[in-house]
């Protein structure tokens, strides 16, 4: 899944990529890439409403919940921007940001506090199948 997010981010650059991760008990098992329909996709992301809804419907059908929301920052580093914090409405989910450092992707994970809108970085562990 990490590879899928990285591939989507590299492919979309210099535009921002975005998508959702579904799963159970906080463990993401499905990747749902969603088109970025922002008018200025190198500076913002807005998930395609139909794509977002399709992803939520697919999760519901599979008995999954929304575990994480990701998007990429192709040129500014993987820290949440003010716009990211103010636009965050699904605060039960992890917010993941893929940064591209000299074309090499890396990931940071955050939780956003519902009242203060402060981002707290989450340490995470990638488990890869043998």
């Amino acid at each position: 899944m990490l590879d899928a997010m990285f591939a989507a981010s590299l492919q979309a650059a210099p535009a921002e990529a975005c998508g959702l991760l579904g799963g159970r008990d906080g463990v993401a098992t499905s990747h749902y890439p969603v088109p970025n329909v922002a008018p200025e996709p190198t500076e913002r992301f807005v998930m395609d409403p139909a794509g977002q809804r399709e992803a939520f419907t697919a999760m519901e059908r599979r008995g999954e919940e929304l575990v994480a929301i990701y998007h990429s920052h192709p040129s500014t580093g993987a820290s949440p921007s003010k716009a990211d914090l103010l636009s965050a409405h699904y605060l039960d989910a992890f917010y993941l940001i893929v940064g591209l450092r000299q074309g090499r992707p890396y990931l940071r994970a955050f939780r956003i506090h519902p009242r203060t809108r402060a981002a707290v970085e989450v340490r995470w562990l990638a488990v890869r199948p043998r």
Binding site: C18, R44, V46, M47, R53, I69, H71, S87, H89, Y90
Partner: peptide, 9 residues
Amino acid sequence: IVPAIAGGI
């Protein structure tokens, strides 16, 4: 009612 998911740099 489905809030859109969005953000920016």
